[in-house]
Design a protein around this nucleic acid. Sequence first.
DNA 1: ATACCTGCAAACAATTTGCACAAAC
DNA 2: GTTTGTGCAAATTGTTTGCAGGTAT
Lengths: 164, 164
Amino acid sequence: MTTPEAPTPPARVNPEAWMQAVRGAWRVGGLRVTEPRLRVLQTIARYGAPFSAEQLYDDLSRDGGERPGRATVYRTLEHLHSAGWLARIHGGAGEAGYVTSLPGHVHHLVCTSCGTVIAFAGCALDELVARLAAQTDFAIEGHLLQLYGRCATCRKARSHPCAD
Amino acid sequence: MTTPEAPTPPARVNPEAWMQAVRGAWRVGGLRVTEPRLRVLQTIARYGAPFSAEQLYDDLSRDGGERPGRATVYRTLEHLHSAGWLARIHGGAGEAGYVTSLPGHVHHLVCTSCGTVIAFAGCALDELVARLAAQTDFAIEGHLLQLYGRCATCRKARSHPCAD
DNA sequence: ATACCTGCAAACAATTTGCACAAAC
DNA sequence: GTTTGTGCAAATTGTTTGCAGGTAT
């Protein structure tokens, strides 16, 4: 009981599954599944590291075909983020950026070298929260937790990033 | 041993002590203690909640006397932040902002109602880190942890913030 | 005296908005 | 056919930079 089991094992988000899940959520939520939005989704799904809105917009230009306008890109990011399909990473490798995520209480472990992100649940902060609540008389309601380190691949290759 | 003791108890940063400490650090570090910088320091010390660069610049105008230029404000913030005298808060009450802090490994508990910030050490993440390292083969080197909740004052006054 | 610091104003970067037109249900 | 989404371009907002002159040590 000192080491709670994680409900799901730490893992990268599967891009294909993620896209399907988002499309499903859009349908159910009454959001229209349009070409521009799908393009955004597809380009996001290809990232292996945190990305910025700016970068996404630029990359969409390069992916051939018509690229969605800035407004659409920003608005789609907004949807995805507020619904929990994207999480924000602060510090670490991607100094600040979005990563694909799944709705719910999840945290992220980021490789500071290549930007690979592993999602995990089970943050085991209960004792800390209880102690702080007692010491400070706060009613603690939430938290932000992100871990940084170097993934196996990046550690083996002394300094060659493993992401492309 | 299941509940490690915090090296120092959770507490607000004392504005006076903070200002003195920063001045000392500036001296020792060879940074000049100038009027504009002192004004910035003083205005920051008065905040009881996370603040933004923008807000600081505006407030400096109102504090009477000559206010430092934008460049000075931003450059001073940069110094203070990189030396650990300011920490960044993400999410919670101050959607994003700086708070006075002390150099070293510290985390923050933020009141989502009034923005009061409590600093604490002893994040008790060792077990979690060990588990994740084993499961993911990452070498985990650092983390970001911030907690959000409502302070005693804000909880008592159903919805009246306790900060001014 | 001589670094270092400051203010200004312009450059830059990032994000938001209004609105006419187009597409989805 | 109505509602929702899109693209554009301009407006905002936030931050950085170059440089001539000023100031702390």
